[in-house]
Design a protein around this nucleic acid. Sequence first.
RNA 1: GGUCGCAUAGCUCAGUUGGUUAGAGCGCUUGCCUCACAUGCAAGAGGUCGCAGGUUCGAGUCCUGCUGCGACCACCA
Length: 918
Amino acid sequence: MPREIARSYSHQEVESKWYARWAEAAHFTPSSPGAPSFSMVIPPPNVTGSLHMGHALNNTLQDVLCRFRRMDGHNVLWVPGTDHAGIATQNVVERQLAAEGLDRTDLGRRAFIEKVWSWREETGHTILRQLRALGVSCDWSRERFTMDEGLSRAVREAFVRLWEEGLLYRAERLINWCPRCKTALADIEVMHEEVDGHLWQVRYPLVGDGDLVVATTRPETMLGDTGVAVHPEDERHADSIGRHARLPIVGREIPVVADTFVDPEFGTGAVKITPGHDFNDFEIGLRNGLEVINILDDDAAVRSEAFVGEDGRAPAWVERYGGQDRFAARERIVGELKEQGLLAEVRPYRHAVGKCYRCQTVIEPYLTPQWFVKIKPLADPAMEAVRRGRTRIVPETWKSSYFAWMENIKDWCVSRQIWWGHQIPAWYCTGCNESLDTDGNRIASGCVPVVGRAAPDRCDTCGGIRFVQDPDVLDTWFSSALWPFSTLGWPDKTADLQAFYPTAALVTGFDILFFWVARMMMMGLKFMDQVPFRDVYVHALVRDQEGQKMSKSKGNVIDPLIMVNRYGADPFRFTLVAMTAMGRDVKLAEDRVAGYQHFVNKLWNATRFVLMNLDDEVLQERRRPAEEPAEQDLDLADRWILSRLKATIERAREAITAYRFNDFAHHLYQFTWHEFCDWYIETSKLRLNRGAGSLAAQRTLHTVLQNILLLLHPLMPFVTEELWEAVTAREGTASPRRDHIMVQRYPAAGDLPADRDAEDKVEFLSGIIRAVRNLRTEMNVPPSRKVRVMLFDTEERLSLVRAHESMVCTLAWAEPPEYLSRGVRPKKVATAIVDTTEVYVPLDGAVDLEEESSRLHRALGKIEAEMERVRKKLDNENFTAKARTEVVEREREKAQEMEEKIEALNRSLGRIRELQAQ
RNA sequence: GGUCGCAUAGCUCAGUUGGUUAGAGCGCUUGCCUCACAUGCAAGAGGUCGCAGGUUCGAGUCCUGCUGCGACCACCA
């Protein structure tokens, strides 16, 4: 019989013990036929990741939802897994290679990919292991990886279907190129950042005479200039239109064109046009028939006739500038322009540059063949679904962001020039495509792909049998976009899809709303003809206590595992949930966690108290927990706490189903601590000690405590499970695992009575008690003495106090009150009013004046002695000058405090003398 | 440049649809080792709810403007 539990809770052993037991009992995915399902997919963390605060918050919230729904009778499925994180993972492994002095080309594609796989075997499960420490209850038997066999099949299938429906195309477009990752990026993967740069004004001589001064932030791109543009109505430059300028350094003649894009107000009103390296210029070039020159491309000579010198080689300047780092080239170009006197002006200029979201390298617009998803036909239904409420975004403020992004969406560049990822299922016949580079490094834009679920056997056109697969891989987010259904077995029609799609909710941070959520919406509707989730709960970012984003470089990172280790998973989870209010960032400070650790301790000790006071029979009674105690001699206090419990259950359920996590936590906290512990347990003590009413009190304590544990379980799974075992005294039952709190019914308010009458009465009585306590303190009644009280009100009100006199007196530590009818108000009293009842504490009756007076004198004596010691210390000892100052400072503060205290004591003594005199 | 959000006690934040003396945790003050818990108990101090107007019988809560932060989006050289 676990009648005694330890004096305090130690989380370490308890947490690992219970996690193992839950897993063993297969509680994570219950299956009761006919029950409603509740499914979620985890936002798959990168395999490269280790657990940070964002994951901790995200997964705690999901776990709270899952545990609640599971207890509430749903068939819960929570699918865990990881994302292969193309560029991020490739970067990690490449860094390892670099440490050995190698790069990926030394290994070759096949060997490199093998290396990534073995890296993943070794370390790719770290983060999922770490999640277990939080107590998350995903179904580990269903762990998926975006590169595993099933999901890869889903990716190929999706790609092929998009192709077949004409929603996928390959084209040469200007894309965002990361020169470090050496791959294309989607628009959304480019982060814009303000930087301090310069605006250079460069003189372009016109052929014949005169010149045009153009302004640019990137002078090095002039190597690829193929025109200069001015506004058609700009009179200053009207003469230049149609003439040619001679490109400095290069010497090429380029046309001056008119385009309304040019803002005559900005700079000089003349813009150099570099169609190969700027999105605007590309458009202008198209409109005006300008050439495109690619200065970063080693193959530039091949790709553009303009670059071919007499000897068939690129002109020297391409080698001088194009091959090297852009910023070094910029300096040399600027230097050379200056030498030639062509630099008209330089001024500091702050402007935005695009950077790679993976490595922060400045993006270079670059003309290459890539694969694109035609996005409009996918985005429209995805917007419609949210508009019609088929998917609800919570909180709603994110809806407008969602629409804004979707409305302006452009075709999605899904190809990446890296090796780690889903290789694009497109093949090129070597017979048909002469320009095919059979090393597979780059497929020219004119080549015709054959897209299919597997490599083709024979070319339909030429009958050839040799094919080269497209070397590009898909954007990582392409596979994540399929996650809600690919993890359930799609493209097969599986029972899982039938049962669990659409998923009930998706819990995610706003940072991946567009990367991931929007794309899941599009793909889910496309391939499943149904939204991927009913609700999207968008939570905020976890910041440090100053509101700064946590980052390694700032050194302000709080490690969730350290929190779990130090305080326990339960307090940590509780903190995260309690801080999660809608639409606001979570600022996390460690002392919050410490604060909620105290709450765990409180719960622990409340349980200890209950266990110490229950008779064996009561402990072993097996009522359904949310059910009022059977015996009907319930006291007012019992009725009150049960009614409060009912209200708490209602509020808690309301909060959690509306994703108001902080409300959920706070209602339960408030009830447990300030209603159950502070009031109910305190009142129960009297009845437990006497015979009368003891049984009802015991049963009520038992019932309410069990309900508290059940209610708190989604938030604090470990400690509640541990305590549940103790309060349900379950040894000897046939199937202990069925008794785990994790699989009990969640309390329902309907099982309990509301009792307005009891609530009103207790509120009144506790008001009286508070008033008396307050007066006690005001009157300086020593704790050893009971206070004398008089109450003045109608007989009816007073009779209520009379009926609960012992409770009131015990909690207020008062003598039995004098009940006064109207008319005889006492004098010389301290008063308070509760409702209509006036509460009096007679001054002279409150304090034993003799005793109090001598107590104060003793205290005064002590302090004066201390003062004397301080004075001596200051006088006698030999200090160095500095030490002396410090000591004096410190002691002076002490002395000040003591003097204040002496003053206060003297005041009290004075009051007592006054009273004695009367 | 566009959009959205936030400004409430010393600190970190609650405050659903406008309704009587604005709440919590931490911190602070005072008194208590009262036999579940000092990771505690009791009592308390502390707020012109960013500023200025407006709507209303009534506004922290709605509207307008301003100030200060923050985020997201964005191809102006």
